[in-house]
Amino acid sequence: MTVHGQDVAADARRLIAEGHISEHALQTVTRIAPERITAFLTSSTAAGLSSDEPSLSPEESARVSTLVAHLAYGFDIDDDERLRAMLEALTGECGFTLQNISRLTQVPVDEVTTALHDSRTLPTETRYTLALRVSYLINAANQARAR
């Protein structure tokens, strides 16, 4: 994903103003104290351009930046590309084989393989089923990772 904006707080304020996320949800997802999120959102400078003490720690800033980038620009990614990327993440980053994914999702391994290379050739119902179940696997893997 490419970075489109440099002012994460401005992007977050825009997402809130457009109803894509609430300040409460931003705080809940990132697990950052409400007063720190509020301070971050009311900041008027781009990251790194202020001599004031930052409202977020570097780690908190990274979490907020990642979430805001995904919400602001991630939906520009084609769904077929997103499915391929999720399959690549499961195999490359999580160590699942295509056979593991097939068994867990109950989608035949040849269809999982096809989805990895060109999911547009699969029936819509198969792509939908695979996308939902692979998304669940990504979530399960993320929740199991050390924090």
Rank of each mutant, 00 (worst) to 15 (best):
Thr42Arg: 09
Leu83Ser: 02
Ala46Asn: 13
Leu49Glu: 13
Asp79Val: 08
Thr129Ser: 07
Cys94Tyr: 07
Ser43Trp: 01
Cys94Gln: 10
Asp110Ile: 10
Thr66Gly: 13
Thr66Tyr: 07
Met86Val: 13
Ser43Glu: 15
Glu81His: 14
Ser55Ala: 15
His70Cys: 13
Leu49Asn: 12
Ser50Asp: 08
Phe96Trp: 14
Glu111Leu: 09
Thr97Gly: 01
Leu130Asp: 00
Thr121Asp: 11
Ser119Val: 03
Ala115Phe: 04
Val134Met: 01
Pro108Thr: 07
Asp52Ala: 15
Ala89His: 07
Phe75Cys: 11
Glu111Arg: 13
Val107Pro: 03
Ser102His: 03
Glu60Ala: 04
Thr45Cys: 12
Thr129Gln: 09
Ser65Thr: 15
Ile77Asn: 02
Asp110Trp: 07
Ser57Asn: 04
Arg82Thr: 15
Leu122Ala: 05
Ala131Pro: 00
Thr45Leu: 08
Arg84Leu: 12
Thr121Ile: 11
Leu122Phe: 03
Thr113Leu: 15
Asn100Arg: 10
Ala85Tyr: 02
Arg82Met: 14
Ala85Ser: 14
Gly95Tyr: 08
Val64Tyr: 01
Thr42Asp: 11
Thr105Gln: 01
Gly74Glu: 06
Glu93His: 14
Phe96His: 12
Ala62Lys: 13
Ala115Thr: 03
Thr91Glu: 02
Arg63Ser: 07
Asp52Glu: 15
Leu71Gln: 04
Ser44Gln: 14
Ala131Trp: 07
Leu90Trp: 06
Ala62Trp: 03
